[in-house]
């Protein structure tokens, strides 16, 4: 070993040969350790493209390629016009629309001759739940939790969108809402790249539900029973605008 006395090597040549061998093994081990750890990074950064990786091959530097224009993926011909555009089969792009001008000078469209009136998908409880979830992801930031146009981004200074709860939009056909989500409207950008078609229709269904929730039709008989319930301090009605206004009264009753 290294601590052998200096005269040890002189005694026999074979012992010195062993020393050289041991030294060679040591050098091999150390260099294997150094080289071996470097190998690790070759395997970590393999010469293939991951999502969003930069490319030196393509002139625009993107490894993820855009589809050539006009590409139709299998099963995505989108030939169902009502489903994919929200417009009627015989839609006329030059159809005249009625407009008014609001106090800010914005042009407000109040007739939608090309938009379909009927939902092209079956609306179930699941559709509405999905629509609620997607509305809260994509729409609520501006349109607010119930669609009054008071979302957080608007409070930060984005131009306020119109409320869903006026007669113009309550009477607007479903196809109009779908078209706005798909292609944008006014200051709003289109969301076609962020929301798939089925989800857009689910959101439209949920917007309709929101409109009903803020403007419930109360038949005279039901209204009577609701009033009676309020008098009895039993607030078991559905969560509607009516019910909300009665809550303080009910709370006061409970406090007595």
């Amino acid at each position: 070993m290294l601590t052998n006395k200096p005269n040890a090597g002189k005694k026999s040549m074979t012992f010195q040969g062993k020393n050289v061998l041991r030294f060679a093994v040591l050098v091999f081990c150390v260099s294997f350790f150094l080289v071996g750890t470097a190998c690790r990074y070759d395997m970590q950064d393999q010469p293939r493209y991951k999502a969003y990786k930069e490319s030196e091959f393509f002139s625009d530097g993107k490894a993820m390629r855009d589809f050539p224009e006009g590409t139709v993926a299998r099963g995505q011909l989108n030939e169902n016009k009502a489903l994919h555009t929200g417009k009627k089969e015989n839609a006329d792009p030059n159809a005249q629309v009625e407009t008014t001008t609001d106090e800010l000078g914005n042009t407000i469209v109040s007739s939608f001759p090309n938009a379909i009136e009927k939902m092209p998908i079956n609306v179930t409880k699941e559709t509405l739940d999905r629509g609620e979830q997607r509305y809260k992801i994509f729409c609520m930031v501006c349109h607010g939790p119930v669609g009054k146009g008071d979302g957080m981004v608007v409070r930060r200074g984005y131009p306020q969108p119109t409320t869903y709860h006026d007669d113009r939009l309550r009477n607007a056909p479903v196809g109009h809402f779908f078209d706005v989500i798909t292609n944008g409207w006014g200051k709003m950008n289109g969301y076609a790249s962020q929301i798939p078609v089925e989800d857009r229709w689910a959101i439209v269904a949920y917007i309709r539900a929101l409109q009903v929730s803020q403007n419930p039709e109360i038949k005279s008989g039901e209204a009577d029973s609701t009033d009676k319930a309020a008098e009895d301090n039993k607030n078991e009605t559905e969560q509607t605008g009516e019910a909300e206004t009665q809550e303080p009264a009910a709370d006061n009753g409970g406090a007595n």
């Binding site: 200074g157 984005y158 131009p159 709003m188």
Partner: peptide
């Protein structure tokens, strides 16, 4: 998908075309 997705600049512009 496998990747959560890095938003395209278009998504930023949904708000930042105004803000």
């Amino acid at each position: 998908a496998a990747s959560a997705g890095i938003p395209p600049t278009q998504t930023c512009m949904n708000c930042h075309n105004q803000l």
